[in-house]
């Protein structure tokens, strides 16, 4: 039953559309466990090359507000939530989030853990749970501050107000903004395009970006140098460069 909250539709071109509707009636822990199972499936399935997270007109990643927890329950919930978001970051495949509706609290935390967000004009974003005395607990405060800066993050978190798609686009929370209803098809197009690129370069590049972001420049550059050298022992590098020289489309294997 809980897995209805989060369904995977695999397409022949290797794109998995993950519809994370959730439900206002479901407990947060149930939804997180459902996401955890789904992400394990996506990571282990070699036919899946790219992932699109999306919601339904009813919502994106909705669940009950966390209430009346003991301290231990609350700490366990936060650990689980953070593990789930790290699992999404470590998927090793491109993962875009499409938002056409409200994307708040856990939904915003999930969207922030994906590679980037594409939105329709009717989208809205925020952390309104502050009104009930709650703050993000899956890494959302840290990811938002790194993405849009400390001042914007504080404004959003302190007020509990939602910002609309235009504002989210202006501050760099969403990468691309489309008229309502067009975000999903445009995101599918972009992801299909990204999936023609080298899976190994995307995976290694994503890992190096994440690992290098929080450490000093010199160490990050050492990491990058070694990862760069590693690319040259792989099939994708020979194929990509040869195809470029032959003026043809590369056929990457991800090896």
């Amino acid at each position: 039953m809980p897995d209805k909250l989060c369904t995977i539709q695999s397409k022949i071109d290797g794109i998995a559309i993950v519809t994370v509707s959730g439900s206002p009636a479901v407990a947060t822990v149930e939804l997180l466990l459902s996401l955890q199972r789904r992400f394990a499936t996506l990571a282990g399935d070699d036919h899946i090359r790219g992932v699109l997270l999306t919601g339904t007109p009813q919502g994106f990643c909705c669940c009950q507000r966390v209430q009346n927890c003991t301290l231990n329950e609350s700490a366990r919930l936060s650990s689980l939530g953070q593990q789930v978001m790290f699992a999404l970051e470590k998927l090793g495949k491109p993962c875009l989030t499409v938002i056409e509706q409200r994307c708040t609290d856990l939904g915003l935390e999930l969207a922030l853990a994906s590679d980037f967000i594409i939105a329709g004009q009717g989208a809205s974003f925020g952390f309104p749970a502050i009104a009930d005395g709650m703050i993000p607990f899956c890494g959302g405060s840290q990811r938002l501050a790194r993405l849009v800066g400390k001042a914007k993050t504080k404004e959003i978190m302190f007020t509990g107000d939602t910002i609309d798609g235009e504002e989210a686009y202006r501050i760099g929370l969403v990468n691309r903004l489309y008229p309502s209803g067009e975000a999903l098809p445009r995101a599918e197009e972009l992801l299909a395009h990204i999936c023609t690129r080298s899976p190994s370069a995307i995976r290694i590049g994503g890992e190096v970006v994440n690992a290098g972001y929080d450490i000093d420049l010199a160490t990050a550059c050492l990491l990058e140098r070694d990862a760069f050298a590693l690319c040259f022992s792989r099939f994708d590098q020979r194929e990509g460069m040869q195809a470029f020289l032959d003026k043809r489309q590369p056929q990457f294997s991800g090896e």
């Binding site: 990204i194 690129r197 080298s198 190994s200 370069a201 995307i202 290694i204 590049g205 190096v208 970006v209 290098g212 972001y213 420049l217 990050a220 550059c221 990058e224 140098r225 990862a227 760069f228 050298a229 690319c231 040259f232 792989r234 099939f235 994708d236 590098q237 020979r238 194929e239 990509g240 460069m241 470029f244 590369p250 990457f252």
Partner: peptide, 14 residues
């Protein structure tokens, strides 16, 4: 880079 099967190597990932 991802079109050529590599990542960048001149500090760009950071």
């Amino acid at each position: 880079g991802a079109r050529l099967g590599i990542i960048t190597g001149f500090c760009g990932t950071r």
